[in-house]
Write a protein that binds this DNA or RNA. Structure first.
Lengths: 196, 196
DNA sequence: TATCTAATTAGATGCTCATCGAATGAGGTT
DNA sequence: AACCTCATTCGATGAGCATCTAATTAGATA
């Protein structure tokens, strides 16, 4: 969770995601109640109820007034309505994704499999992730230029020990072509479609 | 929680009360996603994401379609809106009290302190609960009739061993009066006001 | 049929938080 | 002051659940 707004919404849901608190809210929605009353009505001990009530109060869901040493709690109806309004629209929900979307999927995959020094930690087992990693790799070869197998290997070994597999995969994914021991990149539009 | 509606609402809140699930909802609100994608985007393993998604699907918050063996999940926008609408009104909240209100406060107190055979398990320490128990006790004496201390004791001993304290409390709470060793009930309106 | 890929189910582990009893605080009364 | 009543804070315990790895299911292809 990123922005305060998102964290706040999460807090609200957490507060409402418990039977005891929901019942307490139900009771204080009907009329003011003291802690004692609430405790006996929901069948919990005072400390527990007090705990829940402070949480609800901090979130502004209930109000509290004091008469002598009896504390009277009541529902704060505005708060609930506001909450509900927040959740209504699809855009609001979409905003919950968090982390500010630096995380396009491919970027995230690279983040996971490429270490800071540029080495490939491991070759993804999943077809799609492998595709993302290979796409990144193959873009480091010049377009139009022809490479010997030795050149390819040298370049790949800077990233990962298993250059043979990587080379083979380039061919498999149609990112490169080979003829008589010479390799060259294929145009991106031939394979980038697989992005789905 | 009593009625299905209440249980259902609780389930909703529980589903939304977790950061991972909120972020997943956020992502599927933007566009369809596969389990793999979601897993890398939120930084969790597939099984975990799958777990969350089935929960969300069971509640109708997301939809799922299958293409080959890739499962595509998307937001079910109606569901969230409906949920939010449910929570909007104060009456809805009040209905959450649960247990069908058989539980007026006094009734609940008696339930707690009186055992099935009518014995008083213990004398409540709290003033208000003591009041509730004594009120119940004193109503078992006839109005208008005069009792000797021995009669009072006999009747009280059927409920609790400490008849002396109970007698004294009757006087203290002005539920009974005493003169020259004779006891009688006072009219309810003199003490029942304390119900607050 | 054997193999590959994506997803789900099963089982185990650990963290968060609800709950309780005991101690403390706070407001009133005698 | 000493006491009573109601509430909150503290510290400990335990239940629920998120997460992981490993195993299984299911769809598709060779």
């Amino acid at each position: 969770m990123d922005t305060p707004a998102q964290a706040r919404l999460l807090q609200f849901f957490k507060a409402l995601a418990h039977e005891s608190r929901l019942r307490l809210l139900g009771l204080v929605a009907q009329r003011e109640h003291s802690v004692q009353e609430l405790a006996t009505l929901v069948g919990l001990k005072e400390p527990t109820v007090s705990h829940h009530l402070t949480m609800l109060k901090n979130l502004g869901l209930v109000s509290q007034r004091q008469d002598a040493n009896t504390h009277w709690y009541a529902l704060e109806p505005e708060a609930i309505a506001n909450l509900a309004r927040q959740v209504l629209s699809r855009e609001q929900i979409a905003g919950l994704a968090g982390d500010a979307q630096p995380a396009d999927w491919q970027a995230k995959v690279l983040e996971t499999f490429i270490s800071a020094d540029g080495a490939l930690k491991s070759i993804p087992a999943s077809r799609k992730k492998r595709w993302a990693v290979l796409a990144w790799l193959v873009r480091q070869f010049e377009d139009g230029r022809r490479y010997s197998e030795a050149e390819i290997n040298a370049r790949l070994l800077e990233r990962h020990w298993d250059s043979a597999t990587l080379r083979r995969e380039f061919i498999g994914y149609k990112m490169m072509a080979r003829e008589a021991g010479v390799y060259w990149r294929l145009p991106e539009q031939d394979w980038v479609s697989e992005t789905t």
